[in-house]
């Protein structure tokens, strides 16, 4: 699944970043790299961006729909 299908109250682990090298590098530099755990904090209406919370460092990043579609994740059990 990709991060665009994320639901509230769940924790996901990033598996891979599928966009261009540029975007992948940017996301990694902001702390969203494969292996990092993330959660959905808010979702703007009208196909707006998702507010993603990085569990590793508590940083919140707003990501546009085009970006979240390119982030592949798996759901993990809480605390894993």
């Amino acid at each position: 699944m990709t991060l665009s299908d994320a639901r509230f109250e769940k924790i996901y682990r990033i598996v891979s970043l599928n966009g261009g090298a540029n975007m992948a590098q940017r996301l990694s530099a902001m702390g969203l790299y494969p292996g990092a755990r993330v959660a959905l904090a808010s979702r703007a209406p009208l196909c707006g961006p998702l507010l993603i919370k990085n569990i590793e460092n508590n940083v919140q990043v707003a990501l546009g729909t085009g970006v979240v579609e390119k982030i592949e994740v798996v759901e993990v059990e809480d605390g894993e």
């Binding site: 975007m23 940017r26 996301l27 902001m30 961006p49 507010l51 508590n58 940083v59 919140q60 990043v61 707003a62 990501l63 546009g64 729909t65 085009g66 970006v67």
Partner: peptide
């Protein structure tokens, strides 16, 4: 380009 922006605490 898609939005990528950090939201500070």
């Amino acid at each position: 380009p898609g939005l990528i922006m950090e939201i500070p605490a």
